[in-house]
């Protein structure tokens, strides 16, 4: 059954798959994780603020993102981002944004909802006495959060945040639905051009597996090590 398996096809397309495809995938993963954590932390602070005009919209946003398929959200943003761009820049026409910018906005804003819940759990895991002690020392709210609560919350949540990043890495493959050339997009373009679906999709699966598997093992090791320190 592997008689017709053409390894040469894979070798020939390696530069395209990795320079074009994997670069896009990894860059998107890294930037979306970074922006997602920043926005997610802000959302978490809003949800925990106890001020209803902050908690209500933040909770609504998070719950919306969590109850709708990611694929549907990708479509939403694909059509919305030009209009958001128009609105932000006051231009007369919907803004033409590139595939990367559009994907980045989508993933950052979608993942922010998930990072929000992780950071919220992290913040809530910090004993209330820590906040009281920081306040008793005269710290203002931004200082309490910035120097005492968030550093600890972030540290406690590093393994979970990294695990979510691995999920995000796998999810980037979904940009396939808006025909963007990420790693899977590149593989599928070669596959269809040359009629080599078996080779390309099998190879893509192996690459995703190796990266995700290695990364999740690394997270486990990290988790075990931090568990000992604490």
């Amino acid at each position: 059954m592997f008689a017709h398996f053409d390894f040469g096809e894979i070798v020939r397309s390696l530069p395209y798959l990795f320079y074009t495809g994997m670069t896009f995938t990894l860059l998107l993963t890294a930037l979306a994780t970074f922006i997602g954590i920043v926005v997610g932390t802000l959302l978490a602070l809003m949800r925990l603020s106890g001020i209803s005009f902050l908690t209500v919209p933040a909770a609504a946003y998070v719950n919306l993102m969590r109850s709708v398929p990611f694929v549907l959200m990708i479509f939403w943003f694909y059509f919305l981002v030009p209009y958001i761009g128009q609105w932000v820049t006051f231009s007369a026409q919907p803004l033409q944004v590139g595939a990367f910018a559009s994907s980045l906005v989508t993933f950052s804003l979608f993942e922010a909802a998930f990072f929000c819940e992780i950071m919220r759990a992290g913040i809530q895991s910090i004993p209330r006495g820590q906040v009281a002690a920081a306040q008793a020392l005269g710290m203002t709210y931004p200082m309490v959060m910035g120097y005492v609560v968030l550093p600890q919350a972030f540290r406690n949540m590093v393994p979970v945040l990294l695990t979510q990043t691995i999920v995000l890495f796998q999810d980037t493959s979904l940009v396939y639905v808006i025909s963007v050339t990420d790693f899977l997009g590149a593989a599928s373009k070669v596959a269809e051009r040359d009629g080599r679906l078996v080779e390309m999709y099998t190879f893509a699966a192996c690459v995703y597996f190796v990266i995700s598997f290695a990364a999740s093992r690394a997270v486990q090791v990290l988790q075990r090590r931090t568990a000992i320190i604490r």
Partner: peptide
């Protein structure tokens, strides 16, 4: 202020 559970960071 000094707390029951110290609350060092």
């Amino acid at each position: 202020m000094v707390f029951q559970h110290f609350e060092l960071f």
